[in-house]
Nucleic acid binder design. Structure first.
Ligand code: MN
Ligand code: MN
Ligand code: ZN
Ligand code: ZN
Lengths: 122, 122
DNA sequence: AAATAAATAATAACAATTACTATTATTATT
DNA sequence: AATAATAATAGTAATTGTTATTATTTATTT
């Protein structure tokens, strides 16, 4: 894969936020620096960065979001404000349990907690 | 909500399988009994059945799937054959931990294990 | 049986994403 | 440094999954 300034800027933007942005959000941010950037270019590069393991694509309902943090972790999604917050919950016991009880070879465990974040405490 | 034969048949089909079918799969199955059924009718009724708690909508990447089993449970998805297998992994400790450590009010915990099922053992 | 309004089929609209293609930019080779 | 090879891009069209619209049909109430 050879250099492209578009890909560099897209990567920088993903790495600049904890907000787990969508492709469209990234596109609008990047357009300020590259006015004739194409949304297809954003999607293509996000896929490449995900495939090479630089970032991680996560799925939130029907939209893809992108996470600079490729380490294993989980997410809490607030149904009031939509915010996605990092959280670490998994331990190895889940993977071990599955392998043992179901003979299922585990690649990844995806956990999302749906609820209401502390900002909305009455 | 008043009776409709379309809704009855859609519900029966969801309740007839453990395969976590998509709207399109359900549509094609139901069309055999109701030849001029509309896909919109399938989506509308699946949403109603989900809202009244008769079935549960789950999200698998970018498609919705439907589960007759409304009890709390998790899923393993085989990346080779695409099968979605039920599994029970959660205990109350996750919910308690989140409430305590993050002051986050938990509604639902969604967990999906990605990997390879035992059918593909070499 | 007539009135009311929920549900339907058919179709259009929509949002997220991918595919296509002529042009441009990067890297390797001379 | 010029040339060649080809990966990446912008612009646009196409696709997919889903929701909205609307005239008509159907279930329920009166
Ligand atoms: Mn994260
Ligand atoms: Mn299930
Ligand atoms: Zn919130
Ligand atoms: Zn399998």
């Amino acid at each position: 894969m050879r250099f492209s300034s578009q890909r560099e800027i897209i990567r920088e933007i993903v790495e600049s936020t904890n907000a787990h942005p969508t492709a469209d959000w990234i596109y609008n941010k990047a357009k300020k620096r590259l006015p004739n950037l194409s949304l297809g270019t954003v999607y293509r590069n996000l896929k490449q960065l995900d495939e090479e393991g630089t970032i991680k694509a996560i799925t939130d309902g029907n939209v893809s979001r992108y996470d600079w943090n490729t380490a294993s972790h989980d997410h809490m999604k607030c149904k009031v404000c939509g915010e996605i917050i990092d959280v670490h919950l998994q331990d190895d016991s889940i993977r071990k349990k599955i392998r043992k009880n179901y003979k299922f070879e585990v690649d990844d465990v995806k956990m999302t907690i749906i609820g209401t974040c502390k900002k909305h405490k009455k």
